[in-house]
């Protein structure tokens, strides 16, 4: 029992940054914008959160600074793609490269320094439920936010008027504009939300996952988050399932190795990615269902014609 609990705990730590970054990107894509700069925003969030924590001594101030850093990069992206109408794919890629470079520069003097780890917040009573109690109710703040954001985003997108407008923009920005919905402003806000989530995901990396800063510490998690959004066919609850499935396979393969199963480790390391591909194939077989959820204006620039 103790081992199961320990494994599950490790899985939540591994899944949280993926979940946060993916849920942010989901909102961005639902509004019809494709931001490939998730990796760059995560890594900026990580470095700024770490440096701010070191300088101020407060992990919460640090995490908040990480969120702001993610927003700052997102704002740059929004200005480029929405106001200056640059190509979204190219700008997103540039954002990633920029984030990786700038973060290395900011963090240069902080590499390898032992950081401060964010404490867990224990919720009384609930945390004493056997097995899941500690897992769900004795975690750090960022974990709670990640879970809350899934349900929050789900509620926002499918139960509120503003969410309906956002989806309308993502499906047909021309029609939405004709109806008098403010396309550009909504997209700005969506992109900023995506940046905040990615920044927080980065803060989780440098304050909870491994409390330290090393260059390039996002190690491709931004790309996995992007894949997760497609994997989840733009549905928040499926992002939750996908992130945890991915985390489980990642951690599971390490345990399988430590147990000494005779499976080649290279295969095990590739397993999470193989699982993603398999699910993608299964999902995309049902064309109608896929089309129904895909934002039709995804990745297209919008210039109001009058």
């Amino acid at each position: 029992m103790e081992l199961t609990e320990a494994i599950l705990f490790t899985i939540t730590t591994a899944a949280t940054p993926l979940l946060l970054a993916a849920i942010g990107e989901l909102v961005v894509e639902r509004s019809g914008v494709l931001n490939l700069g998730v990796e760059g925003m995560i890594v900026m969030g990580a470095v700024v959160a770490f440096v701010a924590t070191e300088l101020s001594g407060s992990v919460y101030l640090g995490a908040f600074s990480g969120v702001l850093a993610g927003c700052a990069l997102a704002l740059l992206f929004a200005f480029m793609t929405l106001t200056l109408v640059t190509n979204q794919v190219a700008t997103g890629l540039a954002l990633t490269i920029l984030g990786l470079g700038v973060s290395g520069m900011i963090g240069e003097n902080f590499v390898g320094q032992p950081g401060i780890k964010m404490d867990t917040i224990t919720i009384p009573v609930l945390s004493s439920i056997p097995l899941i109690g500690k897992l769900l109710f004795d975690q750090d703040l960022i974990f709670y936010i990640s879970i809350f954001s899934v349900f929050g985003v789900s509620w926002f997108l499918f139960r509120t008027r503003a969410g309906l407008k956002l989806r309308a923009i993502g499906d047909s920005h021309g029609s939405a504009h004709a109806l008098g919905i403010t396309v550009i402003r909504t997209r700005y806000l969506a992109v900023l939300f995506g940046g905040a989530c990615a920044g927080l995901a980065g803060a989780q990396l440098s304050l909870v996952y491994t409390p330290q800063w090393v260059e390039n510490m996002s190690a491709g998690r931004g790309w996995i988050a992007l894949a997760l959004v497609v994997f989840a066919s733009w549905r928040p609850l499926r992002v939750l399932a996908g992130a945890y499935l991915f985390g489980a396979v990642t951690i599971g393969q390490l345990h399988a190795q430590a147990l000494g199963f005779g499976i080649p480790s290279q295969f095990l390391s590739a397993l999470p990615y193989l699982a993603t591909i398999v699910v993608l194939v299964i999902i995309s077989r049902n064309k109608r269902l896929t089309l129904m959820n895909t934002p039709a204006s995804l990745g297209q620039s919008f210039v109001p014609d009058r």
Partner: peptide, 11 residues
């Protein structure tokens, strides 16, 4: 890969 190394250590 700090994250992966930490996961391996925990496992």
């Amino acid at each position: 890969d700090a994250g992966k190394e930490a996961d391996a250590a925990k496992a």
